[in-house]
Simulated assay, not measured.
Amino acid sequence: MDLALLTLLHLLVFVYWLGGDLGVFYSSTILTNAKQSAAARVAAAQVLAQVDMAPRTAMILTLPTGLTLAAVKGWLILGPFSLALIWVAGLIWLALAWVLHVRHLSPTSILRRADLIIRWVVIAALAILALNLWPNTSGLPLFLKIKCGVLAATILCGLMIRRALVRFGPAFGRLVQDGASPEIDAQIARALDESRPLVVTIWLLLLVAAFLGLAKPL
């Protein structure tokens, strides 16, 4: 793949990840606004769910685009077969994410558990790269090792956000079915308030990763 095109693709992944997250964050403020009607908040939730697929997609594509870019620039020793496997695995994971989004499967479904396992495996693999424990990575630039650690941290933050939002689904279901009430509003606000610091942390981590990728200071 042409280096300029690959670099552009990797940058677009960052843009849609951060930009999509900003859209989701703004939509969440409408959900917690008790002055808004229940219908407006339901509409905001629908927008949030759709826009959220942009950062979800971008996060997954960060791996194949970033690893391919590192291999093309000679920072990471990966042959064509290894890169092909990485892209196939990434696209399978992406397809799984979209199936989960479209079908709205329960948290206990096999596919959701598979997605969770994949995320923990990716976190572990990135941590191994960051700690220079992977074979043939002794010459990996320090800035790239830090980027691997940063990406692992963003995925971990995403899992923590999921845990913080466990109470959101039932509370929002009650909002749709029964309408707003002070109790329901408080439950929704509490769940989203717990997740927002983690979202901001992801933004900061993405900015660090972007700076390292552009400046290559180490």
Rank of each mutant, 00 (worst) to 15 (best):
Asp2Leu: 08
Asp2Cys: 09
Leu3Asn: 15
Leu8Arg: 06
Val13Asp: 06
Trp17Thr: 09
Trp17Glu: 06
Leu18Asp: 05
Gly20Ser: 11
Gly20Gln: 08
Gly20Thr: 02
Leu22Tyr: 02
Gly23Ala: 10
Phe25Pro: 01
Tyr26Arg: 05
Thr29Ala: 06
Thr29Pro: 09
Ile30Gln: 10
Ile30Leu: 12
Leu31Ile: 09
Leu31Thr: 09
Thr32Ile: 02
Ala34Arg: 03
Lys35Gln: 14
Lys35Trp: 03
Gln36Met: 15
Ala39Trp: 00
Ala39Cys: 03
Ala40Thr: 08
Arg41Met: 10
Val42Gln: 08
Val51Trp: 11
Val51Ser: 13
Met53Val: 11
Ala54Met: 15
Pro55Gly: 15
Thr57Gly: 15
Thr57Gln: 12
Ile60Gln: 12
Thr62Phe: 03
Leu63Ser: 11
Leu63Ile: 04
Pro64Leu: 05
Gly66Phe: 03
Leu67Met: 08
Leu67Ile: 01
Leu67Arg: 01
Leu69Phe: 02
Leu69His: 02
Ala70Thr: 08
Ala71Lys: 00
Val72Arg: 15
Lys73Cys: 10
Ile77Cys: 11
Ile77Leu: 13
Ile77Val: 13
Leu78Ala: 14
Phe81Thr: 11
Ser82Ile: 00
Ser82Leu: 02
Leu85Gln: 03
Ile86Met: 01
Trp87Glu: 08
Trp87Tyr: 03
Trp87His: 05
Ala89Asp: 04
Gly90Trp: 01
Leu91Lys: 00
Ile92Gln: 01
Trp93Met: 15
Leu94Lys: 04
Ala97Trp: 04
Val102Ser: 04
Val102Gly: 05
Arg103Trp: 07
Ile110Val: 03
Ile110Ser: 09
Arg113Gln: 06
Arg113Ala: 02
Ala114Tyr: 02
Ala114Asn: 02
Asp115Asn: 00
Leu116His: 01
Ile117Val: 13
Ile118Ser: 15
Val121Phe: 05
Val121Ala: 12
Ile128Leu: 14
Ile128Pro: 10
Ala130Val: 03
Trp134Pro: 12
Thr137Met: 13
Ser138Val: 15
Leu140Thr: 13
Leu142His: 10
Leu142Gln: 04
Leu144Asn: 06
Lys145Met: 10
Lys145Trp: 02
Ala152Ile: 03
Thr154His: 04
Ile155Met: 10
Met160Trp: 11
Ile161Asn: 12
Arg163His: 15
Ala164Arg: 14
Arg167Asp: 13
Arg167Phe: 05
Arg167His: 07
Phe168Gly: 05
Phe168Asn: 09
Gly169Ser: 08
Pro170Lys: 07
Pro170Tyr: 10
Ala171Leu: 09
Ala171Asn: 12
Ala171Thr: 11
Phe172Ser: 11
Phe172Ile: 12
Arg174Tyr: 00
Val176Gln: 13
Val176Thr: 07
Val176Ala: 10
Val176Lys: 06
Ser181Gly: 02
Pro182Cys: 05
Ile188Met: 10
Ala189Glu: 15
Arg190Gly: 07
Arg190Lys: 06
Arg190Cys: 10
Ala191Lys: 06
Leu192Gly: 13
Leu192Lys: 11
Leu192Pro: 14
Asp193Asn: 10
Glu194Cys: 07
Ser195Lys: 00
Pro197Gly: 04
Leu198Cys: 08
Leu198Met: 08
Thr201Asn: 02
Ile202Gln: 07
Trp203Ser: 01
Leu204Cys: 06
Leu206Ser: 11
Leu207Val: 07
Leu207Pro: 14
Val208Ala: 11
Val208Lys: 01
Ala209His: 07
Leu212Gln: 08
Gly213Met: 02
Leu214Gln: 05
Leu214Val: 05
Ala215Met: 05
Ala215His: 07
Leu218Ser: 07
Leu218Gly: 15
Leu218Asn: 09
